[in-house]
């Protein structure tokens, strides 16, 4: 259950970013979460909904791009994607494999409403 810590860190980062900006509200938050991060998206969303009440990002839509594991075998060069990291190449059974993707935990972008709609 480390989802709440992650939500707190995410909110702190967004609140800090909003300090010097003319944001009315944050309406959408897009994250990249690697499959090796042991994060349950529904729990992350639940924590966010609870914690964001009364903040600039209350009611924002949390969009989570789940990044599957990408693993490369250093022995035979085989590259594959998987839901679990089992540490063995399905082609040559080597255990000399490397995790390329799956540890991501990134705030990709935000969608915000500005306070004063500028007309030009």
């Amino acid at each position: 259950m480390h989802e709440m810590s992650i939500v707190e860190a995410l909110m702190e980062q967004i609140i800090e970013m909003s300090q010097d900006e003319d944001w009315e509200a944050v309406t959408r938050i897009r994250l990249k979460v690697g499959a090796m991060r042991q994060i349950v998206p529904d729990i992350l969303k639940f924590c966010f909904d609870v914690a964001s009440k009364g903040t600039i990002m209350e009611n924002a839509l949390l969009e989570i791009d789940e990044i599957p594991l990408l693993i490369k075998c250093d022995e035979c060069g085989y590259l594959w994607s998987d839901r679990e990291f089992l540490g063995m190449c399905p082609k040559c059974s080597s255990i000399n494999v490397n995790l390329l993707n799956g540890m991501e935990l990134e705030l990709t972008n935000l969608e915000v409403e500005m306070k004063h709609a500028k007309t030009c």
């Binding site: 860190a9 980062q13 994250l31 990134e106 990709t108 935000l110 969608e111």
Partner: peptide, 16 residues
Amino acid sequence: MPRLVNVKKSVMAADE
């Protein structure tokens, strides 16, 4: 009009 703000930063940046 909503505006898109690109961040591309680790969520845990402060703790990192």
